[in-house]
Structures are given as structure tokens and as C-alpha cells.
């Protein structure tokens, strides 16, 4: 099992169509495939409506896919049902975005975290308190927080509790769905620091979903960029975020707010995502892409550029070589 990836998503599709607007393209995830290696931190970047949350929920088995497989270790997680599914949930956990609703308001932190230990029988009953206190220390919470209720905690503390719950059963993979985007800047930094330390400590793989490129760059070693249900670019963070190839990634990076604004930020997309403008089987970015041309009416294939760097754009090879060479040289 050791050389198998923690998570392997194979041609996953889960679409939602709007019954009021049959002409508009459906949102969700369409035929996404990727792997998360053991102990790896992969970032999934995308804006609202790109299907990143749907993908995350499918991966942890909270939503069933239309087609495709979720493979965790050597088990096809998406094929499990009933008790087997329930037992297997131990291996994939999730941390949600909104601190207001991520904890059960009627349960103390201790009870909320303990449920995972009880249900999966991870530790003996007498050792629960010790284990949960150790978890609290791991995510940077004081032991007296355990007996509090969610309304007595701040947003950052709640997200730490959510992390505790996810970590409690020693999962193989944790999906973090925008865990810090509802937090204040200073609290976000605290939580991100903890997450980064944690990752080294617990050895689980992380899939970090976010719209914030800077946060992903800080925490992830590899990134996937998603737009309207498909992955448009993927590769090591350093390569993708320093030398983006896909126009969408470039625009995303150009638009990211900075303390020191760049004099020449580069490419920007026009307008907003309008579902009615996108035709099936074409490049989803085409209606907003400043570089769009005739070929874009056909969906571009994923082009392999360099070590693990891939982009789904007809221009990928044209815009990549120069940057490719430099990254290749830097690496050697």
C-alpha cells in the first residue's frame, strides 16, 4: 500500500443542472482525474462555481458521483455502501469553511471530537481524554477549551476544533475546504501556521481547497487549478504559480491582491463567468479569455510541459517553452 497514492480520483463526474435555465451549461465536476501522493499537500484553486467544493464533498463520500471512482489507498471508496462505507470514512476526513456551522452547537468540544474516537473505536474508553487532550495540543488549543461549547469560541478556535475532529481518527487524507477564508487575516495566519506544522507531524495527505492563490502557495507543494468543473492546469506550486501557462491561471495570479502591487500585473479575464455563454465541448475559459481563437471551440487536451506540469490550453506549448527551460535549468 505504501507506494500507492493516498487518493486517486478517476474521471469523476458530478453535475448539477439548473432546471430554470436548461440552455446554460451545468456546473459541478466533469471528468476530473488526479492523484494525491502519501504525505503530499495538494492545493485546489478555483473561484466560486468551479466545482471545487463538489469535488471535495465527493472525495469524502458526502456526495455520490454521477460516474468515476474515488480510490483511497487500495480501496475503491466510491463503491462502498452501508456499514463498509461507514467504517471506511475513518480514512478520509474533511474540514469545512464556515466556522459558524462546522460545529454542533449543542455539543461540547470534547463530545464533538470524541464521537469519531467512539465510532471508529480508535482508542480504549479510558484513554479518550488523554488522546483528545493530545489532539488539542496538536492543533494549538488549550485543554480548558475542551469543555466549552461552540458559541463560546472564536472563529479561529472553532476551525481548530474542526481540525481536531478530522485528525482524531488518524485519516489517510484530509480535505480542507477553504478552512481559513472566513477568518481574519491574523487568525488565518495562526491557523495556516498550525496546519503547516501539523502536516509534518501527522503524515496525512492534505487536499487544500481555496480561492486564495497566496494561501495555496504558502501551504501546498502541488496545485490544481480548476475552472467550471475541469482542471485547467496542474503541477508543482513553484512552477505553476511562478510561471503559469494557462491564461486563467495567469489572470488569477494577476488579480490576486498584493501588499506591493506589481507594476505590470499581466493578463486579465473579461467579465464574469456566465454559464449561458459556455458551450459544451469547448474550452470553458474561451468566452472570457483574451487569447481565445478559433481552435478554442474544441476543448484542448492536457498538454504535458515539464515534470508534472500540465495545462489544458491550445497555447500551452507556445507559451511554455521559455519558462520551461528556465525552470528545468533552475532545477538541475
Amino acid at each position: 500500500m505504501n507506494d500507492l497514492p493516498s487518493l486517486s480520483v478517476r474521471k469523476l463526474t458530478k453535475l448539477f443542472s439548473d432546471p430554470d435555465r436548461p440552455d446554460a451549461i451545468s456546473v459541478g465536476v466533469r471528468g476530473v482525474s488526479f492523484d494525491v501522493e502519501r504525505g503530499e499537500v495538494v492545493g485546489l484553486i478555483g473561484e466560486s462555481g468551479c466545482g471545487k467544493t463538489t469535488l471535495g464533498r465527493c472525495i469524502v463520500g458526502l456526495q455520490s458521483a454521477d460516474s468515476g471512482d474515488i480510490v483511497v489507498g487500495d480501496t475503491i471508496f466510491s463503491a462502498l455502501r452501508g456499514k463498509a462505507l461507514r467504517r471506511f470514512r475513518k480514512n478520509v476526513q474533511i474540514v469545512f469553511q464556515r466556522p459558524e456551522t462546522s460545529l454542533n452547537p449543542r455539543m461540547s468540544v470534547y463530545t464533538f471530537v470524541r464521537q469519531a474516537l467512539r465510532n471508529f473505536a480508535t482508542v480504549r474508553k479510558g484513554e479518550e481524554r488523554v488522546r483528545i487532550e493530545a489532539l488539542a495540543a496538536l492543533v494549538g488549543l488549550r485543554p480548558d477549551t475542551l469543555d466549552r461549547f461552540p458559541h463560546q469560541l472564536s472563529g479561529g478556535e472553532r476551525q481548530r476544533v474542526a481540525m481536531m475532529r478530522a485528525l482524531a481518527c488518524e485519516p489517510e487524507l484530509i480535505v480542507l475546504d477553504e478552512p481559513t477564508s472566513a477568518l481574519d487575516v491574523s487568525v488565518q495566519a495562526q491557523v495556516l501556521r498550525t496546519l503547516k506544522d501539523l502536516q509534518g507531524e501527522v503524515g496525512a495527505s492534505f487536499l487544500f481547497i481555496s480561492h486564495d492563490v497566496a494561501v495555496v502557495r504558502y501551504i501546498c507543494s502541488r496545485v490544481l487549478v480548476m475552472y467550471l468543473g475541469v482542471i485547467v492546469e496542474e503541477g508543482p506550486s513553484e512552477t505553476v504559480l511562478a510561471h503559469p501557462v494557462h491564461p486563467y491561471t495567469q489572470a488569477l495570479l494577476a488579480a490576486a491582491p498584493r501588499i506591493t502591487p506589481k507594476p505590470d500585473p499581466g493578463l486579465s479575464l473579461t467579465g464574469e463567468l456566465v454559464l449561458g455563454d459556455v458551450r459544451p465541448h469547448e474550452c470553458p475559459v474561451r468566452p472570457r479569455c483574451p487569447l481565445a481563437h478559433d481552435r478554442c471551440h474544441k476543448a484542448p487536451p492536457m498538454a504535458d510541459l515539464s515534470s508534472g506540469h500540465r495545462a489544458a490550453c491550445w497555447l500551452a506549448h507556445d507559451s511554455a517553452p521559455s519558462t520551461n527551460m528556465t525552470t528545468a535549468r533552475e532545477r538541475t
Partner: peptide, 23 residues
């Protein structure tokens, strides 16, 4: 200073220095 140090930077994966405590 703390606010600036706490914001992750798009252009470099520099370390964050979080502010402690709450407002």
C-alpha cells in the same frame, strides 16, 4: 507590521508571522 507579516504572499512562499491573540 504584524498585519503585513501575516498575509501570505502570492509571489513567494515566505514564512508567515502570525499575530497572537484576538482583537
Amino acid at each position: 507590521q504584524g498585519l503585513i507579516a501575516a498575509v501570505p504572499d502570492v509571489d513567494s512562499p515566505r514564512e508567515l508571522v502570525p499575530l497572537i491573540g484576538s482583537v
